[in-house]
Amino acid sequence: METIDLIDLVSIGLLLLGALFFLTGTVGLLRFNNCFARLHALTKADNVGLGCIALGLMLQAESGWAVAKIALIWALAQLAATVSAHLIARFSLRLGGGVRRMPP
């Protein structure tokens, strides 16, 4: 890497942005006060975070095959995260919990 071209710069920016989103998600997970709020903070944050990192890596990937694979991973993660968040939220709602804290 003798010189830094534009792609590298974009890639670095995306990666750092992704890391930031992850940080946000973690802070949200730790600091928000009930289950739904935490869910809210987390799912968005980590998906965007993963998206940014995936995008950043795609720019650096050695082949189209690798790009496709990373894209697939991202897509799958989106789908899984969506469904998981939905399921857990539903579960939590049915339990009547989340807002009311359960005794440990």
Binding site: C35, I88, S92, L95, G97, G98, R101, M102, P103, P104
Partner: peptide, 10 residues
């Protein structure tokens, strides 16, 4: 710290 199971799963 939980507190609920859902938190942990999240």
């Amino acid at each position: 710290f939980g507190p609920t199971a859902a938190d942990r799963m999240l």
